[in-house]
């Protein structure tokens, strides 16, 4: 192995890593927000809308991200949707992640005890206030471990953005290996970067979990 190659390609890999983090962070936030919206519409919206949403969830979950991205990036222009690689990648991640987040939120909302919602109804609180003050805070807390977990899964879905030429880390390491034939070094570097990212997310996630549950755990 020859690690001196990293001196030459270091800046390129770092910029790729930056793009990876950007895609992951924005993709996670966007798909989480969309997922939350879907879960709320599913819970409160009219039934036909629920069926449409269910179909969306099944279709997106039932097909590979690779295929979705191809359709969006190469098929999009056929219907007038012409996006650059990065926006297309972000949109793709948002669509791909949303049904998983929606399902996490749906089950978290179902886990909020009905009695606590009834207590709010019984004093005359509006459904909107109940969502804001009871359902969301309690639901988000119980969803947190699963949200962190799926965010971690999403880090590794970003590598697929390389096929539509988003200059993220995988794209750059592939460039490095085709230019230098240092496949092992390139892939090890790729693995290390991802491991560092995932480790950071999971540590932050655990801290956050501890913080938000500190009042909810029964101490007798």
């Amino acid at each position: 192995m020859d690690w001196t190659i990293l001196q030459q390609y270091g800046p390129l890999l770092l910029s790729g890593f930056g793009t990876t983090i950007l895609c992951w962070a924005l993709g996670t936030v966007f798909s989480m927000v969309l997922g939350l919206l879907i879960a709320l519409l599913q819970r409160y919206g009219p039934r036909p809308l629920g069926w449409v949403i269910q179909a969306y969830i099944e279709i997106i979950r039932g097909t590979p991200f690779l295929v979705q991205l191809f359709v969006l990036y190469y098929g999009g222009p056929l219907i007038g949707l012409r996006l650059d690689a990065l926006p297309a990648g972000l949109l793709g991640l948002t669509i791909y992640g949303s049904p998983y987040f929606a399902e996490i939120f749906r089950s978290a909302f179902n886990a909020v005890p009905l009695g606590q919602i009834e207590a709010a109804r019984a004093i005359g609180m509006s459904e909107l206030s109940i969502i804001r003050r009871i359902l969301l805070p309690l639901g988000l807390v119980s969803a947190l471990p699963a949200l962190v977990n799926f965010s971690i899964i999403l880090t590794k879905e970003t590598v697929i953005l390389s096929i539509i030429t988003v200059p993220e880390l995988t794209y750059q390491t592939q460039r490095m290996s085709t230019e230098t034939f240092r496949y092992i070094e390139a892939n090890l570097a790729l693995a290390l970067f991802f491991w560092a990212l995932v480790e950071t997310i999971s540590r932050v996630g655990r801290k956050l979990e501890k913080r938000v549950t500190r009042h909810l755990i029964e101490r007798t």
Binding site: G115, Q116, E118, A119, R121, I123
Partner: peptide, 29 residues
């Protein structure tokens, strides 16, 4: 909701909101 405002209800399982203090539970409504 307006009628419910003047009817109090106490449940078997208390149904306090666990993320609020005792004071917060009372001020909420």
């Amino acid at each position: 909701r307006e009628i419910r405002r003047s009817i109090g209800m106490v449940f078997q399982q208390f149904n306090l909101w666990p993320h609020m203090t005792a004071l917060g539970n009372v001020t909420e409504g």
